[in-house]
Amino acid sequence: MVPLAWACLAAGHEVRVAAPPGLEGMILRAGLTPVRAGREVDVTGVVRGFVKGPGNGNGNGPARSAQAGPSAKMPRALGMFVDLAVAMVDDLAAFARDWRADVVVYDPTAWAGPLAAAAAGVPAVRQLYGVDLLFPARDAIVRALEPVGDRLGVGPVDPLGLLTIDPCPAELQGPAPGARQRMRYLPYHGVHDRRPAGPPARRDRPVVCVTWGTTMSRLGDEYFLAGHVARALAGLDAEILLAVTPGQRTTLGPLPPDVHVVESAPLRLLLPGADLLVHHGGAGSMLTGLVHGLPQLALPELPDHIAHAGRLAATGAGVALNPAEGFGADRIRAAVEGLLASADHEGSARRLSAEMAAHPTPAALVAELEQLAGARAAGRAAV
């Protein structure tokens, strides 16, 4: 959401980013103004319970349920997101009213956003970070939020808001009902206090970039498979580029000599020199890879990652391994070799990349937010 917030600031509007206290430092480092809303909710244990597949770090453990997609445990996920909304909504609604916000922009799991917008009587705009996985649960979400809406005196609230901002190419997103505005995906990877390291010097063989985001390592070392993937590719006629955080590096284990480890380097700086991206199925990694037209291999373990990886594979721009079958080294290696040898996957990735580049920039969408806000948008916008 940072590029759109910056675009609103650059257009002369005021922006506040409401979030639980634990995100305050991250918001400040992004050059934005935080507003503390609510309390922390520990969701790590709940999310860990969603993991599918072996989850033992080597792909050879006993497989769990093969059921994929967010519907596998939707009631539990709904409860988690409702808890997050309840934790934030009172503070957020009070701030939106007192600050006289004109628009509330929220991510698709931050349901305090549309509730607070309804309480303040202003438009609510939903900004997706990937495939619209929660749209099928729209009716269930409305029912789940009814008690909160009744307490606020706003009645039933539509979690989709008045408009959805969508960063995905149409083919990746699939059917997308409701008022929807495409927006060019601009990768944001934080603010760095030193010049980030770049990729190794290019040689006369392919470069495979492996990244595992930040979510899986927070769930536990056994779910962080980047080192396992690198070992699976030992001896492959390719340069292996492993993008990790400093904390993740300590969990990688022994690595082959042809693996180049880069710490805290933004993917957007690494991927222009790569030929293939291997990751955990996270939306940010996937969309950043598509920005650069890269074919991808996904090894997803969480339901939303499985769903994103499935949509990616359906476009032809990548391959998704089934966690129920394990992530053994032979399967990983065979998938990477197949992707490197295929021009079709690269062609599909480049097609999606071209579509994304044609989407309006965040700066172009500021006028859309102003129009929704109407006459009150002359000088304020709230995110």
Rank of each mutant, 00 (worst) to 15 (best):
M1T: 14
V2L: 11
P3E: 11
W6S: 10
E14T: 13
V17T: 01
G25P: 02
V35I: 14
R36H: 10
V46Q: 06
V51R: 12
G53P: 14
G55Q: 13
N56Q: 15
S65G: 15
S65H: 15
M74C: 00
V82W: 03
L92V: 09
V103D: 01
V104T: 04
D107M: 11
P108H: 09
W111N: 00
A120W: 03
Y129K: 11
L134C: 11
A137Q: 11
E146P: 02
R151A: 15
G155Y: 03
T164D: 05
A170H: 11
G178V: 08
P187F: 06
G190A: 14
V210C: 09
M216A: 13
Y223W: 13
A232V: 04
P246K: 08
T250L: 10
A265E: 01
R268Q: 06
L271G: 01
P272M: 04
H279W: 07
G281K: 01
M286N: 03
G289Y: 00
V291I: 07
H292W: 08
G293W: 00
E301S: 15
L302S: 06
H305F: 10
H308V: 10
L321H: 08
L321A: 08
F327V: 13
A329K: 09
R331V: 12
R333C: 11
E337C: 03
L339N: 02
D344F: 08
E355Y: 00
A358V: 11
A358T: 13
A358I: 09
A363R: 10
E370K: 04
E370F: 01
